[in-house]
């Protein structure tokens, strides 16, 4: 059974800020979903290749260099463009 500590741990992994109230609500909802998906345990999946769906015709292609987005276009919607890159707050002291 999912507990609130696990919800907080998963939120930390996902870098997702949650309020205490949200942690409680999400715990209940996610526990319900995780109980529901146990229906998959009854399916015989012996020998099934989990990548067996990859369609034909989607093979690898030549690794050609192509023009990409112009730097100024890529930076235009960023919260903090700095010189020629994305500005970020300090990561550590």
């Amino acid at each position: 059974m999912l507990d609130e500590a696990e919800v907080r741990q998963v939120a930390r992994l996902a870098r997702l800020g949650l309020t205490d109230e949200e942690v409680g609500v999400m715990r209940g909802q996610l526990a319900g979903v995780l109980a529901h998906v146990r229906d998959l345990d009854a399916v015989d999946v012996e020998g099934v290749d989990p990548l067996g769906l990859a369609p034909a015709g989607m093979g690898s292609r030549e690794d050609d260099v192509r023009a990409g987005l112009a730097r100024e276009d890529a930076l235009a919607g960023a919260p903090e463009p700095v010189d020629e890159g994305f500005g970020v707050p300090k990561a550590f002291e």
């Binding site: 996902a14 870098r15 997702l16 800020g17 949650l18 609500v25 999400m26 996610l30 707050p89 990561a91």
Partner: peptide
Amino acid sequence: ADLTETYERTRARFGPEVKRRILL
């Protein structure tokens, strides 16, 4: 205060359905 907290505070603005799915 730092990069991690910036990530978390920014992503706190997702709505509940998106948060639920990211968590799951």
